[in-house]
Nucleic acid binder design. Sequence first.
DNA 1: GGGTTGCTCAAAATAAAATTCGGTTTTGTT
DNA 2: AACAAAACCGAATTTTATTTTGAGCAACCC
Lengths: 158, 158
Amino acid sequence: MQLDKINRKILSILQQDARITNQDLAERVNLSPSSCLNRVRKLEQQGLIGPYLGVVDLATLCRSVTVIATVSLKDQSTDAFRAFQQAAQDIPEVVECYIVSGTFDIFLRIVAPDMNRYNEINDRLLDLQPGKVNISSHVVLSTGKPFRGYPLDQLIDG
Amino acid sequence: MQLDKINRKILSILQQDARITNQDLAERVNLSPSSCLNRVRKLEQQGLIGPYLGVVDLATLCRSVTVIATVSLKDQSTDAFRAFQQAAQDIPEVVECYIVSGTFDIFLRIVAPDMNRYNEINDRLLDLQPGKVNISSHVVLSTGKPFRGYPLDQLIDG
DNA sequence: GGGTTGCTCAAAATAAAATTCGGTTTTGTT
DNA sequence: AACAAAACCGAATTTTATTTTGAGCAACCC
């Protein structure tokens, strides 16, 4: 039964509306509240869903600069990657980091209060492996499509 | 009063734990439940917070391919940008899109069930403005740091 | 000062949700 | 077909959340 139609629907709904009540969720998947809660708990225990995040409107909230940075490492050793990755995790302004294959190695999204602060972060990243890190910065002008969850319908089997 | 210390704390907490109960939230910000709920409702009405998303563990859930794509447009008109942006919004597998300044124009995150499907999406994007779109694809090997909210402490005034 | 506004709080009333449980149905297996 | 396991439902219970109410307090403006 592990990932039947109902569980997929639960995940799909919960992904887009994390604050829905169990009762409403139960109604939408045609289940009794008790059964529905059982399923949600199991899905959470299995780590298939959670944590639950509130989307904050950063632009309205405060002045900030978002930068997409592509990184190339001269040293392609796993140690070099691990060190860089650790730094990304430790710097709160680095909000996202992917290791990729292609014309660069690492992709970062960085959010800073202003350009001065971004520059500091940039320097800090460059200093990790002096002369062996190449960072290309791309200031975000506008958000064409904010992340709002994955298209589970397209992704899971059907 | 619009964005005092308490509201910032509410946003910060709600950003990272969207399913917290109002009572627990009230306790954490040292407010009565009613006052706390009032603030949350206002923040929501103002669009400063919401929607609330459940984070799904895509890797465990199903087989999928995530690609970071950088796009350059030969035609730098606003119309060309608008058309591309619209396409990004219409394709569910394109889960994120930023317009940037730098060595490329647009940044995309695309999640597909497999490479064949990704290739189709890639073609579709290329065909938008035949011969005038340059896409560089970077397959995600691993996630160094998943997005878990913004560092509001660093960003708002302090 | 007096009035207004907009916040706060606490308590009570209301509403809703989570949990539990026995009995039933479905599903999967032999 | 028979059995066992798992999942379901519905109702009762307990717990928790939400709204409402009334009153206090501070800031601001006339």
